[in-house]
Design a protein around this nucleic acid. Sequence first.
DNA 1: ACACAAAGTTCGCGTC
DNA 2: GACGCGAACTTTGTGT
Lengths: 85, 85, 85, 85
Amino acid sequence: MTDAGHNSVAADQLRTIVERIERLEDDKKAVVEDIKQLYMEAKGNGFDNKAIRKIVALRAMDEGKRKEAQAMLDLYAHALGLDLL
Amino acid sequence: MTDAGHNSVAADQLRTIVERIERLEDDKKAVVEDIKQLYMEAKGNGFDNKAIRKIVALRAMDEGKRKEAQAMLDLYAHALGLDLL
Amino acid sequence: MTDAGHNSVAADQLRTIVERIERLEDDKKAVVEDIKQLYMEAKGNGFDNKAIRKIVALRAMDEGKRKEAQAMLDLYAHALGLDLL
Amino acid sequence: MTDAGHNSVAADQLRTIVERIERLEDDKKAVVEDIKQLYMEAKGNGFDNKAIRKIVALRAMDEGKRKEAQAMLDLYAHALGLDLL
DNA sequence: ACACAAAGTTCGCGTC
DNA sequence: GACGCGAACTTTGTGT
């Protein structure tokens, strides 16, 4: 088998990989677009998107970690006399 | 209608929005995961992921590449155009 | 007066502006580097940089806006039955 | 030594760190403001700020540009090298 | 209000 | 295997 033949295998493999990635990236792009649309819709209904984003992030976050991070923040805030609420 | 009733409308709307976002985020996450898997598979086949990423980026750019090149020319035309006009 | 002479004024002006910007960008870069060093030092002393960043951000934020944003978040969280604390 | 005393050490350390960061952030803010002023001045003199921004970016890149170009060549050498080796 | 640009955050990589 | 470095993505702010 020639080098060309041998290499064409890798080249084909590479091409396949790249194309599969590109398709998935297209999918991702579509989903991101849908999400954007949803936020626009929410805004149209008078919601505060920034708050919604935070809510989504908080719900996604592991509860344990969230409370731990909050505790650390509270600790530091207290040490500096910063009134968080 | 009570305030509770009144609020529950917005609350339901909010909940619906948040849940729809979360579903889309799940979709997105799944796609991102698939992409990651692909890269891992590529790596397992001896490919250089960094190079693949650049290839993908370049191909994605190539659609807008002419526009970019054109913009670059315009840029210089403008920037140096100050000397010319 | 030739075009060249006339244009050289604008060109010189442009050059001056660009160079002044570049100097300021260098300054900025240096400051950013210093900040990074500070965070590294803090980490070396056992502090949680993420929490410190939040503290700095909170202190920088206008108190009114901060509480307003927090109130909105609380409102939404409550509507969804999300326990923040 | 009381806990309060013990903690006050860390609290003081934390306060010092935060305040040093805040000072540096102020410096940064001032520099950013100066840059903004410069752009406004440039605009007042009839220059195209968008073009200037690109010029500055390009000049900043130009130091690393050869490296980037080299990286691009290496990239293709690698990616296509699969066909060659 | 939209798009562009800047900042911060996170993730993968190379290094030690 | 942990740490710092650099790139990619997300989010925030600003100028039009």
